[in-house]
Amino acid sequence: MVAARPRRPPDPDAPRGAGPGRPKDLAKRDAILEAAKGLFVRLGFDAVSMDQIAAEAGVSKLTVYSHFGDKDALFAAAVESHCAQALPDSLLQAHPHMPIRERLTEIATAFYTMIASPEAIAGHRILCSPRLADSPLPQSFWDAGPRRVQERFAALLDTRVAAGDLDIPDTALAASQFFTLLKGEPHARMVFGCDCAEPRLAAPAHIAASVDMFLRAYAAR
């Protein structure tokens, strides 16, 4: 009779089936995202490999693929993670008892801080590169970041319109206008590398002027 072979312990980094009740390791997922964000900022999208991301995160390449599928999906997830950390859903709640100017200024300050960060500037430059401009990546970026923020902000505006604080016929359009105002010339200068320190130093005045212009257009009379 042939003796049974001893069973090998399972490899914790081996890809697993998507069976019910088998959650992925959230700590490893977070480590992969942080590693990817750092590498994309330092090296750019094309220069980063999944092997480098795995090594930086301290996991196997199979684990990276198990969580994210491919590098494009990982980049989109990194964008979503960055936006969610800087502008969490809790920040985009209506808070109807807070004065509308104060509420808009709070959101505007968080948004401007996010888009002026080195990570956001590097990500914007990556997406403007010729090779990526014709790829699905810009659309993935839009869906993971700006679209999420604008949709939640439009819902906040709906609540404030219903409360009588604002008079806005098209809140989706107004949400787009609000964030476009905040980006304005300062964001373009930071992306182009033109006197980057000045837009950051002038941020409070720029934010206040943008909120003021928005309220001049949409505050309830």
Rank of each mutant, 00 (worst) to 15 (best):
A120I: 03
T109D: 12
T171Y: 01
A36R: 01
S90R: 09
G164Y: 04
A14P: 00
G164D: 07
G38F: 03
L104E: 10
F45H: 14
S129Y: 01
A73L: 11
D72E: 13
D30W: 03
F178I: 02
E198W: 07
A172V: 12
P20C: 11
A47T: 07
R7C: 06
L166K: 08
H97Q: 14
A144C: 08
D165W: 00
P130N: 09
E119P: 00
D143L: 09
G21E: 04
H97A: 14
P136M: 02
P136H: 01
R125G: 04
S210N: 08
D170L: 05
S135A: 14
A55N: 10
R200A: 15
A18D: 09
A163S: 12
V149K: 02
P204K: 09
I126N: 09
P88Y: 01
C196R: 12
P9W: 03
G193P: 11
M50W: 01
L181E: 07
R200Y: 06
L43A: 15
V79S: 08
T171S: 11
L87M: 06
R160G: 11
I53P: 05
F45M: 12
R22Y: 00
V48Q: 09
S49V: 15
S129I: 04
Y65H: 12
A14Y: 00
D158Y: 02
S90W: 00
S210V: 05
T109K: 08
E80W: 04
S117H: 06
Y65M: 11
C83H: 06
D25Y: 00
P169G: 14
G38A: 08
L127T: 08
A94F: 04
D134G: 13
K183N: 13
P23A: 14
Q177V: 14
A217R: 06
D11M: 07
P6Y: 01
M190D: 07
L173V: 13
V48T: 14
C128Q: 15
V149L: 10
Q52K: 13
R189G: 09
R189M: 15
E80I: 04
A122Y: 01
E151V: 09
V48N: 10
L33K: 00
F192L: 15
I32L: 06
P169A: 12
I32M: 10
G184I: 04
A77G: 13
F153Y: 04
R22H: 05
S176H: 05
A163H: 05
R200F: 08
G193H: 02
A208F: 03
A154S: 11
P199S: 03
K183H: 08
L181W: 02
C83P: 00
S90L: 09
I107R: 03
E185A: 13
F141P: 01
K183Y: 09
F178G: 04
A78E: 03
